[in-house]
Simulated scan of single mutants.
Amino acid sequence: MRVYHYLELESALERSGIGTAADHQRLAVERANGDGIHASADVTDDTDDTDVELVTSPCDGRPWQIPARLARRTDPFVAYDVAHCNGIGPGSLALAGHARRTGRPLVLHAHVTREDFAESFRGSTLAAGPLGRYLRWFYSQADLVCCPSEYTKRVLESYPIDAPIETITNGVDLPSLEGFEAFRAPVREHYDLEGMVVFAVGNVFERKGVTTFCRLAQQTEFDFAWFGPYDRGPHASSTVRTWTKNPPENVTFTGWIDDKRGAFAAGDVFCFPTKVENQGISVLEAMACEKAVVLRDIPVFEEFYTDGVDCLKCSTLSEFRDALERLADDPALRRRLGERARETAEEHRLEVVGERLHEVYRRVRAKT
């Protein structure tokens, strides 16, 4: 079976959660197949249905040739059995329209909701309302909408989305984190980090709790480090510009780090005071590295993590502070939480994701 697995603006999304989730899907299918994926437009018609062949090239030719080929009434798209889109922009619209016109099953992966779009970029909160109306229409075109959590499914149902919705974890790529321990000393030395380091990983947004992160630092004596890119240009929110330009003395914003293993090696307690999340891949990565995890107590985390078992959950600034101080005073608790967190992460390994995707592709194809 040939699946056109499409991620719009792939290079621009390389450092985003959406890009990571799409990469996980491709790796997951590869591992479920037991051999390599074929990301090529040069395909034949004798694909074995027992495996899934992913076609990731956007068209038979060059992407910028699509309008001209459509004008000549020449089909620009490669042959495929199922379309699986991970974006919401013009390219995704074009592929969704092609799938609908040609009677091919369409799977749309809902990485974006109006709720998690707010408080990300400058103006994103104002745009969240119109975006929600667009997403309701766009996702409703699908034969199946996939999303990473039951929380996100409930959000989409509230819009409402006129399509069946199923959950598939974004997963965690356990092999990609192997050997992270070797990075600890050099990364800590490079960023001048000492003692119990409180850390976060990912894009720096207000939605992800940068204000809480920095205020926690102001109220404690721990070193804090946020590993991930941030923007101080016109797209950045005023909050992000303020904190990254003038951070508390014990906070380091590292910017993009080439090897994520360095972040998980240097940090000791993963602190993620995010306000809205569809799942949170970085949480699973921290858990895979057996780090103690402190989370904001929000609905999406209820289905995945248990307070006092594989994490600590907090609602207020004082609760976050108390949790950090408790972990600093009790290394055995940090170790115990980390061990259980690793068990949780293994439940989201990519082999599980691959099996689910294979099953989804076979089922939607069988219905058309």
Rank of each mutant, 00 (worst) to 15 (best):
T254A: 09
E249G: 13
T368L: 05
P58N: 05
F199A: 07
D297T: 04
L7I: 01
P234E: 12
R349P: 04
H38F: 12
E303V: 00
C85G: 08
L13V: 05
E249C: 07
D45C: 07
I88L: 04
E150T: 07
T167R: 04
P160L: 01
A328R: 14
L126R: 09
F183V: 02
E8V: 01
V29I: 13
D322A: 09
P164D: 06
N246E: 08
G255R: 05
H235V: 15
E346N: 08
T74F: 04
A68F: 15
S92C: 13
G34T: 11
E119S: 15
R241T: 11
F180I: 03
R335Q: 12
Q279G: 06
E8C: 01
N246M: 00
E339P: 03
T344E: 12
L317G: 03
D259L: 07
L284Y: 11
D329T: 12
D75G: 03
Y134M: 00
S40M: 02
A22Q: 09
V240S: 10
E8G: 02
R342F: 13
R184T: 02
F117Y: 14
F253G: 09
I66F: 09
A200V: 10
V187F: 10
G103L: 01
R62Q: 14
N246K: 07
R101E: 12
A94K: 09
R15F: 08
A79W: 10
L27D: 08
Q25H: 15
A288W: 04
E347G: 08
K275H: 14
V172Y: 05
R356H: 12
R184H: 03
L357F: 14
G34R: 08
V364R: 04
S120E: 10
C314L: 13
D329M: 08
R362Y: 02
G129K: 14
G280F: 00
L174F: 01
R72C: 09
Y159H: 05
L131H: 01
R261E: 00
